[in-house]
Design a protein around this nucleic acid. Structure first.
Lengths: 331, 331
DNA sequence: ATGAAAGCGCTAACAA
DNA sequence: TTGTTAGCGCTTTCAT
């Protein structure tokens, strides 16, 4: 019958299904997308025939025709790994929140690194960027694509950029209040302030300290890992203990710091009080159980997703800082 | 000049760039994909012009024309969340291994749930499925798409299905050997054996016990959470302690079990020895530090990615069970 | 080294 | 309720 193609191995297209039934392919299109303008009996027939022939929609073709992809890119700065699980600033639960929301909206999510995104841009309608990168370079790269995008992090960029993040300044304040409540006066800050969010944490911490008698006696730039925290504090302790309280920019750093303190025969919280950040899963498992500032990752992720989808559909959108909460435990 | 379109707001296409320079659009295409058949000077000119005009490749159009998407779908069974971080059978590091490998191959990754995949199939060349689902239903659904796919889990399905997973039977054996070495003889197994991987763990555990004088005295189906582990063991202990060793299908379950044991005034490992599974990040933080069977997630993820890409490019591919390792700690 | 024509598979717009 | 026509933006094929 079909003189066009001698029955190749390839999968059938709408044209094939249409020819089989003697209808126009637009009718097949309408039927399979359940449009009510097609008679229900016709729809059923087409559905069955398509099924029987093994027909599958070619998503690329539809994306091209409709000029949209129902896909959002989530761009992270580096690949996750086992030893970074707890220390990563952007954990699985942030992704979970994003995914939940995108899924509910029927949107797919392509997960990619900043490098891959630059080299092989995927086909997407919008972008969620987790972390601006040092000096905003990641955000600038995304901006250049012209796609709608939102960022997780600190609002240090241009004011028109949509940013969702925790209220890191307030997190710093909470940490300060906790340490002040423990009568700590000589405080140590551990964290890399090149990172906008960490800078905000330090800012809020300092602000809450002014006029209290307590003060920051030292600050050490420090990666988000247990090892980095341990090393930083070990070095400091070699020249004697000049502090009685620590605010660490992540729980991993805090754990490393505590290990270093205890390695000197000192006790936490006896000699030194410690506050971490993130309330990671390990915080309540660690010994001593870690006091930490909790971020609401899941809600943050959901907000990111909502906002980027709103941007895609042309709505106006605003930045948002999410409240944080101090979880007081033993440290 | 351009009489076709009165300079719309839309982004320029290759045709626009071509018209601007008075060349054919195919030349623009060739130049931008750096084909050596185009004179270098022409290439440079086209590159600059495209850049100046803000040209961006339309990936959907290319995907349609080339009949491939450079994208692999990773299908998970449910969205990750904070409280599941440690207990999930498929953690971030598995994803990390997949991502690393796909990224290196210039492939994008779309992360999706089984439901979303069914409702809105993304445009992909292949699928990595994490977990077959109960009764294989997830795998069957993927199979029906006709796309090349590989599965993480246990090789309980049809033999032609490509499966990558840990050697769970050997993991069970290692757990048995450890408990036997601690002179434990009345053993408890905690885990949901509907789950193929867990079933293999139990199988290897039982096999290693035969003819040793030790035996399984009880087994409880149990979700992958701390709470489920705690509850299962609490219930058992209400009628007295009939066991002196526990093999739990995950570290989270093991932690819950230990909490329940200690809540009765018993000690781990004094009265009861416990082996977990996964060696999750919390295992070494927990008190007592948890003995656990470690899976090599990152390598597993990398293998999954390699194999699905091989399938996509028509190569022959085989299933693979990865070695596991017992990490002996305090429990 | 460059170009012209064709068409990937789908759906919007406009008939009938 | 169904059909016709056109075209999304790109790259393959075949010419020049």
């Amino acid at each position: 019958m079909s003189k066009h193609k001698p029955n190749e191995r390839a999968r059938p297209t709408m044209a094939d299904v249409a020819r089989e039934l003697g209808v126009a392919k637009i009718t097949v299109s309408r039927a399979l997308s359940e449009q009510s303008t097609v008679k229900e009996s016709t729809r059923a027939l087409i559905r069955e025939t398509a099924e029987r022939m093994g027909y599958r929609l070619n998503v690329s073709a539809r994306n091209l025709r409709q000029q949209r992809t129902r896909t959002i890119a989530v761009v992270i700065e580096m690949a996750p790994s086992h030893d970074r699980l707890m220390s990563e600033p952007y954990p699985l639960s942030l992704l979970g929140g994003i995914m939940q929301e995108l899924t509910a909206a029927g949107q797919n999510m392509v997960l990619t690194t900043i490098d891959l995104f630059a080299a092989h841009p995927p086909s997407t309608d919008g972008v969620i960027l987790l972390g601006q990168g040092v000096h905003d370079d990641a955000a600038a790269m995304i901006e250049a694509t012209g796609l709608p995008y939102v960022v997780w992090g600190a609002a240090h960029g241009p004011p028109e950029r949509i940013v969702v993040g925790s209220d890191n300044r307030d997190g710093g304040r909470l940490a300060a209040d906790y340490l002040l409540g423990k009568q700590r006066t000589k405080l140590l800050f551990l964290g890399e302030t090149q990172h906008g969010e960490v800078d905000d944490r330090l800012g809020g911490f300092e602000a809450a300290l002014t006029g209290t008698g307590a003060a920051i006696v030292d600050r050490v730039a420090c990666a988000f890992t247990v090892a980095a925290g341990r090393e930083a504090v070990s070095k400091l302790l070699e020249r004697g203990r000049g502090f009685d309280g620590i605010f660490a920019a992540s729980d991993a750093i805090a754990m490393g710091a505590i290990e270093a303190v205890e390695a000197q025969g000192l006790s936490v919280p006896g000699d030194v009080s410690v506050v971490g950040f993130d309330d990671s899963p390990g915080a309540s498992l660690f010994s001593p159980r870690l006091t930490s500032v909790r971020q609401d990752w899941a809600t943050g992720g959901a907000l990111l997703a909502q906002k980027v989808l709103d941007l895609v559909s042309g709505k106006r959108v605003e930045s948002r800082a999410m409240p944080v909460e101090l979880v007081a435990r033993e440290s």
